[in-house]
Design a protein around this nucleic acid. Structure first.
Lengths: 187, 187
DNA sequence: AAAATAGCGGAACATTGTTCCGCAAGCAAA
DNA sequence: TTTGCTTGCGGAACAATGTTCCGCTATTTT
């Protein structure tokens, strides 16, 4: 991490960014399961180079989406402050989360699959999103708006699963079902 | 299908059953993604033999679970008759479906993944389970117990997704979330 | 200038779904 | 019965994909 100065380091950084850009584009076109080789070709590098920067496939996916995940998490406190009720904030935040998941082809499925190679991604989502969700949920419970049985992790996971879309179950359906789920949480 | 008489045919049938048994056992141990080679070894046959009987992986999975799926579908009309209210029937039927999914490691994820190789399985579940669910749902709508916006397919799919379990989200959580979802459907 | 090393490209390896081919044995025709 | 066809089978072979490994180049260090 201590970015040693020098031409080489700078070049490496450029390569890394190129890989991230290529991966991002590939994920849009082919979903998160885009083959590493395709990404390497897009980026004009060898596969070894990708693995040098990102030890595993999940690390690459993680790096590509980290910013968006952080943004989503940061949204929670703001919504809580601005919304009429804690439940309304939770509802709006869920919508943001759904929008994030649903625009990333296969991300939901990848998360749900339990693929051991995606542990990192899973961990990241959990570490940053669960606390954010917990904040909202706690506020809802405090206001007696939702069943205290429901945990942030379980809710996040359920929402994530509901966002696994396909040809006959698209983002609209996912959004609707998440809304139904939240309605069911309500006191 | 016209079971030609003869020693060969009988042997083939025996082989087929052996494969089904081996697959069933392998699915319990390793989940539905158990490699074909493992199943072949368990059954004491070559991989070619498996493909002779089941053109694709999904056909094998389908064959293994077909009976249980049919049983589940057949449960719907009976519950509708015996239950106090249509919604209660729907609720009980959902529990049965959840139990089915949740005991098959990875089945939910496989269904959700959109893996093109599993089209057959997907189609089977849809063809037999969706009509069963629709019966219940229609009764609920007629009794004004659930929102008519909800379609059988969407509900099935949502329940299926909620049943994608993992280390930190198990069958208990899945059952709870499905109950919450149904509560949200209620009028 | 020589030696060490970071960064890179791509061949090579492992796993898995699927196809293909040759073989053994039952079955039918001669 | 003998001969040739067909069924069913086993496993090698192929393709796709994640991942590791090795040798090369050019920068950095001594």
């Amino acid at each position: 991490m201590p970015e040693g100065t020098g031409v080489r380091r700078a070049q490496a950084q450029r390569t890394r960014n190129g890989v991230l850009a290529a991966a991002s584009a590939a994920f849009v076109d082919q979903g998160v399961q885009a083959p590493i080789r395709d990404i390497a070709e897009r980026a004009g590098v060898g596969v070894g180079t990708i693995y040098r920067h990102f030890p595993t496939r999940a690390d690459l996916v993680t790096a590509v989406y980290r910013h968006q995940i952080d943004t989503c998490a940061a949204l929670a406190p703001r919504l809580l402050e601005e919304s009429a009720s804690p439940f309304s904030a939770l509802s709006q935040w869920s919508n943001a989360f759904v929008d994030f998941l649903v625009t990333k082809h296969g991300l939901g499925a990848a998360l749900g699959s339990g693929d051991p190679g995606l542990e990192n991604l899973h961990a990241l989502m959990l570490d940053t999103l669960v606390p954010a969700c917990a904040t909202l949920l706690d506020a809802c419970v405090a206001a007696d708006e939702v069943d205290p049985e429901i945990t942030a992790y379980t809710l996040m996971r359920a929402i994530g699963n509901l966002c696994i879309t396909g040809p006959d179950y698209d983002r609209v359906d996912a959004g609707r079902m998440v809304a139904v789920l939240l309605a069911g949480c309500r006191r």
